[in-house]
């Protein structure tokens, strides 16, 4: 296998395009009306594009087998930064309505900072608090964007600073 693929980056990119293309074309075909070229249905455009993408993916993959297109290997995939950065973003999204931006924001800064190898808790806590207060001041108190600030508890919602 290794010997066959001369350009692994292209090869896997090609596979990715084939999978995504087939997915779109398949869903379009299965769920929506096709119509004709003169009177296209909702499936027509995505089906054609999906097919085209799969075809291009195939060509890319096949070309990557040729010696002429030799290229470097796919670099190592680092899961840790992906996990911390994306995980903390998702957590922020999910908890924003419940915890409010002040808490969720500090959480976001702290957790995402774990993705870096030079994590210092004290620094990050200070940074997190500073940034969330800055954001609250600019976006909520300044511009009046409707972003929940405090945890969704009735008593807290009546505090003036928590008000949108």
């Amino acid at each position: 296998m290794k010997a066959l693929i001369k350009n692994p980056r292209d090869f896997w990119a090609g596979i990715m395009f084939i999978v995504i293309g087939c997915l779109f074309a398949g869903v379009a075909l299965a769920s929506y009306k096709m119509g004709t070229a003169a009177r296209m249905g909702p499936a027509y455009f995505p089906f054609v594009l999906g097919g085209l993408l799969a075809l291009l993916g195939l060509v890319i993959s096949l070309l990557s087998l040729s010696k002429k297109n030799a290229g470097p290997a796919v670099e190592k995939f680092h899961w840790a930064p992906n996990f911390w950065v994306l995980g903390s973003i998702c957590l922020f999204g999910v908890t924003l309505k419940i915890f409010g931006a002040l808490l969720s924001g500090v959480l976001l800064v702290l957790l995402s900072a774990l993705g870096s190898s030079e994590f210092k808790l004290r620094d990050m806590l200070l940074l997190g608090i500073g940034l969330t207060i800055f954001c609250a001041a600019v976006f909520v108190w300044g511009l009046g964007l409707p972003i929940p600030l405090c945890p969704n508890i009735d008593a807290l919602q009546q505090v003036k600073l928590c008000r949108i």
């Binding site: 973003i89 924003l96 976001l108 800064v109 900072a113 870096s116 030079e118 620094d123 940034l131 972003i147």
Partner: peptide, 19 residues
């Protein structure tokens, strides 16, 4: 230092995307 810069970018982006 990047370790301070990127959490800041993240929080602005998240609030921005939400808004």
């Amino acid at each position: 230092p990047y370790r301070l810069l990127y959490p800041a970018i993240l929080i602005f982006c998240c609030i921005g995307v939400y808004s």
